[in-house]
Design a protein around this nucleic acid. Structure first.
Lengths: 211, 211
DNA sequence: TTTAATTGACCGAACGCTCGCTCAATCCCA
DNA sequence: TGGGATTGAGCGAGCGTTCGGTCAATTAAA
C-alpha cells in the first residue's frame, strides 16, 4: 500500500518534471525571440507568456520573478555552450588543435547569435549573484583557450609568456562574441567561415611572432 | 528698434544656449554615474534630476523624454571621441603612425571606461534612428583605422588585402572596447599600458605575417 | 461499469505600486 | 515688477505579481 503510494508519487513527480522541462523550454525559446526584438526591460511578462504559448497565470507557475526568465535564458545558453565545447580536445598541444577549437567556438556562436547577443546586453539586469555565475562561465571559456595555448607552449609549438597566453585567450573569446554583437558590421564583409579563417590567421601569426 | 529686439533676442538665445549647455553637462555627468550603477532602465527620472543637481521639473525643461538623456550621454561620448581622435595623424603611412593611433584610442577608452560601458550596454534602448546615428559613429572609428592601415599598405610597409584591413580595423576597435566592457577580467592582469603594448605587438605581427 | 470525488494545470481579472511626465505655484534677478 | 527659471505634488498608464476559480483528466467508491 505504502509502496503503491510511493510509486504513484514518483510517477507523478517524473511527469511533473517533464512538464516543467517542456514549459521552461517554451519560455526560453519564446523569450529569446522577444528579448532580441525589444530587450528584457521592454518585454512584459504578459508578452513572455504569450510567446511561450500560455497565459500569464501559467507563466508564474514556472517562474518566481521576471528576472528568472532572463536567468533561464542565460543558463540555457551556457548549458549548450558547455555541451558543444566539451567535445573540444585540449591536450594534444598542437596548433591544429587550437585552430579546431577556434573553429568550433566560432561556429557555436554563429549558431546562437541571438542568444549571445541577449546575454551580452542583458547580463547586467540579473541579480548580482546570478551575474557572478555568468561571469564564472565566461572565465571558464577563457580558461579553455588558455589551456590549449599553454599546451602548445609546453610542446614547443609556441614560445610566449603566460600573460600573453591570457591576452590571446581573451582576444579569441571576445572576437568570437564580436561576431554576435557586431554582426551588423561584419556580416556584410564576411561569412562566418571567412571570418573564422581570417581570425585564425591573424591570431596565430600574432602568437608566432616570437619564434 | 527691430535691431535692438534682435540683439536682445540673440543675447537671450546666447544666454539660453549657455544655460542649456551647462544644464546638459550636469545631466550627462550625473546620468553617467547613475547608469553605470544601475543601468538606464533602473534609473528613474527623479534620480537623474537629483544627480544632475535639480528637480524633476527642471530636468524636463531640458529634455523631452528619458531616452533623450541616454542619447545625450551617447552623443557626448562621441563628441569627446572625435575631439580626441581628431589629432591623430592618418597620412604618413608608417607603422609608427598606426601604433600611435592605437595608443591614443586605447588611452581614450581607458579615460572613459564608464561612458563606453554604458554606450555598449544601452545603445539598444535608444529609438531606432538614434541607434543608427551611433552605429554611424562606430563605423567612422573603424574607417579611421582602415585609412591608417591602408596608407601603410600603399607606402609598402604592409602587404595585406582590403578584407584583412577591414578585419584588423574592426579587431582594434573591438579590443579597445573590450578594455571597457571586460575590465573585470583584464584589469587584474594588465595595466592599460601593458594591455596596449601587448595588443600592438599581437596585432602588428598578425598584420605583418604576409611579408 | 458507472458515478462521485479529487487533483492540479491553467486562466485572467484585479491589485498595489512604480515611474515618466505635467503644470500651477513659487522663486529670483534684472 | 515682469518674466524666465525652478519646483514638486500630482496624475494615470502600465507594470509585475497574485489568487480565486474552472475544467479535463485521473482516481476511488459503488
Amino acid at each position: 500500500m505504502l509502496e503503491n503510494e510511493e510509486k504513484i508519487l514518483v510517477q507523478t513527480n517524473v511527469k511533473d518534471e517533464n512538464l516543467i522541462e517542456i514549459r521552461r523550454k517554451q519560455i526560453v525559446s519564446g523569450a529569446v525571440k522577444l528579448f532580441r526584438e525589444k530587450g528584457f526591460h521592454r518585454a512584459t511578462t504578459r508578452e513572455i507568456a504569450k510567446a511561450a504559448g500560455f497565459s500569464i497565470g501559467t507563466l508564474y507557475e514556472y517562474i518566481r520573478t521576471k528576472e528568472d526568465v532572463l536567468y533561464l535564458v542565460c543558463d540555457n545558453i551556457y548549458d549548450q555552450v558547455i555541451q558543444r565545447l566539451s567535445t573540444i580536445s585540449t591536450s594534444k598541444g598542437t596548433l591544429e588543435e587550437l585552430k579546431l577549437a577556434i573553429k568550433q567556438y566560432f561556429s557555436l556562436i554563429d549558431s546562437m547569435v541571438d542568444e549571445f547577443t541577449i546575454m551580452y546586453q542583458e547580463t547586467k539586469s540579473l541579480p548580482k549573484d546570478k551575474q557572478q555565475y555568468i561571469l564564472q562561465k565566461e572565465l571558464e571559456m577563457v580558461s579553455l583557450f588558455e589551456k590549449i595555448i599553454k599546451n602548445c607552449v609546453q610542446s614547443g609549438e609556441l614560445t610566449i609568456s603566460n600573460q600573453e597566453i591570457y591576452l590571446a585567450a581573451n582576444l579569441l573569446v571576445v572576437q568570437g562574441q564580436a561576431w554576435a554583437f557586431r554582426k551588423w558590421a561584419l556580416q556584410k564583409h564576411f561569412t562566418i567561415e571567412e571570418y573564422t579563417e581570417a581570425q585564425i590567421t591573424m591570431c596565430l601569426s600574432g602568437l608566432l611572432h616570437y619564434e
